[in-house]
Design a protein around this nucleic acid. Structure first.
Lengths: 189, 189
DNA sequence: GTCTATACTAAGATAGAC
DNA sequence: GTCTATCTTAGTATAGAC
């Protein structure tokens, strides 16, 4: 808030995230955001160059946190041994302060796809998959470790596992993720 | 083709699905579809009442097939014993002629959400989850069986497991799904 | 029955006044 | 830092040509 004279930028982000989570990115118009704030559309364009810019500003923090996990994992020697810790750190992020944003990203994957913000999600997810599945060669093993990441995301998504309390769902998600990521002992049929 | 003199309706569906899969539902304009077909936007409105109607026409066949699986499963006596067969039938649908449409639904879940077509996906998915997870009480078990369905969908999605040949990915998806849906023997920590 | 011409509303976006 | 006015293009609707 240092050099600025209003907090409109932050209020835009706040209201936009509310509406994006409720209705989805495409279905939320700038007019709606502006009206709820009591300003005009043009005012939004002073603070953000495009609608995409708004969502990008919301998502970039998550991207940075993902990057930190990825870089940490790559710095370690033993990829398999590190996998579990990667999932635990991811779980903390998703169940913590980034929960709503991660859910939003998950629900609006296609909308974000071609957006600049899409890179934040898609690229990072691919890197996470790579980090988590380094030593897995066949399709089944790759699918398992990638599903571990998916388990964390959908398990903490109200729309997916909404009947259970959030903390219970979060626990379950982590347990399932760890199981999916654990090296196979017995083979399949 | 009985009472009709042109195949424009089918061509619209074809072109629309192509573009929807490529670019997503929201990003594809009616002008684009019309131009690729060499007609005007208004012509589309002769064959379909709305844009949503187009996607609905694409998705309803899948919905019917899902319903058949759900109804069959409910007609059986033993819910757990039937779970495996439900997943196998789902796998056939997804890897078969409905593959592209299922991938489209998956990728455009938020766009379809409030649409009439959304009921085809969301409602059916919930019912599938219910059928597949009847006897599972805790969050972890529910998450596992629901992830089994997700495994089938993402495993057959090029964007998710694109490095492997389609048939290999399909096999892997079914194996992982069956494993996730199999009753637990050992407990977690 | 099939399609074009035309027009309407609302969206994202921009220029310039205050 | 915010507003008014305007632009382009989206989805939608309908009257009427063939």
């Amino acid at each position: 808030m240092a050099g600025r004279r209003t907090d409109t930028r932050e209020r835009i982000q706040q209201v936009a995230l509310d509406l994006f989570v409720e209705q989805g990115y495409e279905k939320t118009s700038l007019r709606e955001i502006a009206e709820r704030l009591g300003v005009t559309k043009a005012a939004l364009y002073y603070h953000f160059r495009t609608k995409e810019d708004i969502v990008h500003s919301l998502v970039e923090d998550v991207g940075t946190s993902f990057d930190e996990i990825i870089e940490w994992a790559r710095a370690q020697g033993d990829p398999v041994g590190v996998r579990e810790e990667v999932l635990r750190r991811l779980s903390v992020l998703i169940t913590g302060r980034f929960g709503r944003i991660v859910q939003f990203m998950q629900d609006n994957q296609p909308a974000l796809k071609d957006l600049h913000a899409g890179a934040v999600l898609v690229t990072r997810l691919r890197e996470l998959f790579a980090v988590v599945g380094v030593d897995e060669a066949d399709a089944e093993s790759q699918l398992r470790v990638r599903l571990a990441v998916v388990a964390l995301m959908v398990g903490n998504n109200q729309r997916f596992l909404g009947e259970f309390p959030a903390d219970e769902a979060a626990d379950a998600a982590l347990r399932v993720a760890l199981e999916l990521a654990s090296p196979r002992s017995g083979g399949a049929t």
